[in-house]
């Protein structure tokens, strides 16, 4: 069986220089940009950015609609979008555009009135590096999870979804190559909804699932035995 490689990552945040001053403007700009990393940034990269995770609105579009457009209805409609349910960022972008269009069609407001602050379209570069840590068994991985950097959690759990063939996280992919019992743990991890959680919370939940399925052998309080 292949060992599990612990990879870590860090983000460089880049301003595209594009900004939308109002709802119409945002709609038009989203139609023009075809850079998938922009959508990924505004839906997922917040987890690794030095920003406060908005407890109410999980993506930048919803947060902007609430805080800067003061449009609660639109904020709610955008906030409910779950990016992991879209197979590509292009589809997600189309859905956001549809929501904006439907909202503008509803009328009752001027979509060209400037927001309190513009929406800045951003993207990121992800720098990926091998920590050289290798884990041989699922139990060993379970014990290691609480010690994992948040960059590693992001890489193996969030970034993996756009990288793996199945669209699932690295933990599940690896566990599915083990026996039936480990596969069940893989399934449980695959069904986790990461969208309303911080990376710290995701790490805690992962650790809890490993302990629940694999028992004391995967309990982080057990001493690590065979990392290399």
């Amino acid at each position: 069986m292949e060992s599990f490689k612990i990879i870590d990552c860090a983000l460089s945040v880049i301003a595209t220089g594009e900004k939308a001053y109002n709802l119409r403007d945002l709609h038009d700009r989203l139609q023009r940009v075809d850079d998938q990393s922009i959508m990924f940034f505004h839906f997922w990269d917040g987890l690794l950015r030095p920003d406060f995770i908005d407890p109410e609105y999980q993506n930048d579009f919803a947060s902007w609609a609430y805080h800067d457009l003061h449009d609660r209805r639109l904020a709610e409609q955008l906030s409910i979008l779950n990016p992991s349910k879209f197979s590509t960022m292009r589809e997600l972008r189309e859905r956001v555009i549809q929501i904006l269009e439907d909202h503008m069609d509803e009328g009752g407001f001027d979509s060209r009135i400037d927001a309190e602050n513009p929406f800045f379209l951003m993207r990121s570069q992800i720098v990926i590096f091998d920590t050289q840590k290798r884990l041989e068994t699922p139990e060993e991985l379970g014990r290691f999870i609480p010690h994992m950097s948040l960059g590693s959690v992001f890489y193996h759990f969030i970034d993996a979804c756009r990288r793996t063939r199945s669209g699932h996280n690295d933990f599940s992919e690896w566990l599915w190559t083990w026996n039936e019992h480990h596969s069940q743990l893989g399934n449980a991890i695959a069904s986790m909804d990461p969208y309303f959680k911080s990376l710290l919370e995701i790490r805690e939940q992962l650790s809890g699932l490993f302990t629940k399925y694999l028992g004391p052998a995967a309990d982080p309080d057990n001493k690590l035995e065979s990392t290399k």
Binding site: S37, R123, S124, Q125, I126, V127, I128, F129, D130
Partner: peptide
């Protein structure tokens, strides 16, 4: 300027 930079 690539989006993903793999140091390994």
């Amino acid at each position: 300027s690539r989006d993903r930079i793999e140091l390994s």
